[in-house]
Simulated assay, not measured.
Amino acid sequence: MNAPVGNPTRGTTGTNRLRRNDRWIAASDAFRRAADPLVVDLGYGASGVTAFELATRLRRVRPDAEVLGLELDPERVATARRQLDDVRAGRTPFAADLPVSFARGGFEVPVPGGRRPAVIRAMNVLRQYDEGDVADAWRRVASRLTPGGMLFEGTCDEIGRIASWVDVESDGRPVSFTISLRLTELEHPGIVAERLPKALIHRNVSGERIHDLLTALDREWDRAAPLSAFGPVQRWLAAVSALKAQGIPVQGTKQRWRLGEVTVPWTAVAPAS
C-alpha cells in the first residue's frame, strides 16, 4: 500500500463536537438520495467517537447507511478499532451493530471494493494547511465521490458550539457556505470568524465578501436585540430574515435557520482574488 496522502492533524476529538455537521449531512440530498449511502469521516482524529456519532444519526434517516473512518496515523486507526470492539461487545452507549469501520487513508480516500462514497466529511482537517493548498485538496478528495456526492469541509470549536463548512461537489467546485451556531448565550455571530474554513479564515478583512457577510450578520443580530425577550431563536430568525430582505442570497428555510444555521452560495463569500 502506498503511503496515505496528507499531513497529520493535531487530532483533538470531543464527544458531540461535530453534531451540527452530522445534522447537516443527515439532511443533505447527497446522503438521502444516494444509491449507496456510504459516508467517509476523513481525519476523524484521536478517537473514533465522531464516526460512531455520525453513524448513529445517519441510521435514523437511512438504516442502510455506513460510515468509514479514515486516518493517516496507524495508531489512531488501531485505537478506533479497539473502541469499535467495545461497541460490538455492548460496552458503550452505541448500538452494537453500528455500521462503522476504520482504515488507514488520507486524501486518496481508499474504499474497499471500489465503492465511491456519497459523502465525505473533512472537518478540522485543513486548518494546518496553507490557503493555497485548499483548492487542490478539495479536487483530490471530491474526485473520490460518486456522481452527485458531496464533500463537506470546514472547522468547528472544541465543543461544537461554533462551526462552519463548505459544500463541495464531486468536480471539486464549492457550491455553498454554512455557519452553524449554538444560539443560547451567543453574544455575536461574528465569533465564527475564529472557526472559518481555511479557504476563508484569512479573508475576514475589509474588501472581502466573507467580511461583509459577518459584518451584516452582526449588525442585524444587534438590531434584533429587543426580540431576545422571546428567546435567541426568534432573534436569530429576525437577523437572518433581515439579511435576505437586503438581497443577501440566504438559502434554506426557517426550519434550518432555527437550528442556528445560515447558508449562502459560495459566490457570496468567495475570496476576491
Rank of each mutant, 00 (worst) to 15 (best):
A3R: 00
V5I: 15
G6Q: 08
G6E: 01
T9M: 10
R10F: 13
G11P: 00
T13A: 12
G14N: 14
N16L: 10
R17A: 10
R20F: 01
R23W: 11
W24M: 15
I25R: 07
A27Q: 12
D29E: 14
D29S: 15
A34R: 08
A35D: 08
A35R: 12
A35W: 09
A35F: 10
L38G: 02
L42T: 04
L42Y: 03
Y44D: 00
Y44F: 15
A46R: 12
A55P: 05
A55C: 03
R62M: 07
P63S: 14
V67P: 08
D73L: 00
R76I: 06
V77R: 08
A78P: 07
R82T: 14
Q83N: 11
D86Q: 14
G90N: 06
T92F: 02
P93I: 08
A95M: 07
A96H: 07
P99I: 06
P99M: 10
F102I: 08
A103E: 04
F107D: 03
E108Q: 05
V109T: 04
V109Q: 08
P110M: 01
P110R: 05
G113D: 04
G114I: 09
R116H: 07
R116K: 04
P117R: 02
I120Y: 01
V125P: 11
V125A: 00
L126M: 06
Q128A: 15
Y129F: 05
E131Q: 12
R139A: 15
V141P: 04
R144E: 01
T146M: 11
G148F: 07
G148T: 02
G154Y: 11
C156N: 11
E158W: 14
V166R: 04
D167S: 13
V168E: 01
V175A: 07
T178R: 10
L181Q: 13
E185W: 00
V192H: 03
A193T: 00
H202P: 03
V205E: 12
G207L: 11
G207M: 10
G207A: 08
E208Q: 15
T215P: 04
T215K: 11
A216L: 14
L217C: 08
L217Q: 03
E220W: 00
W221L: 04
D222L: 12
A225K: 13
S228T: 11
S228P: 08
F230Y: 14
P232N: 02
L237Y: 00
V240A: 00
A245E: 13
V250M: 00
Q255G: 13
V262S: 06
T267C: 11
A268T: 04
V269E: 02
V269W: 10
A270Q: 05
P271D: 09
S273A: 14
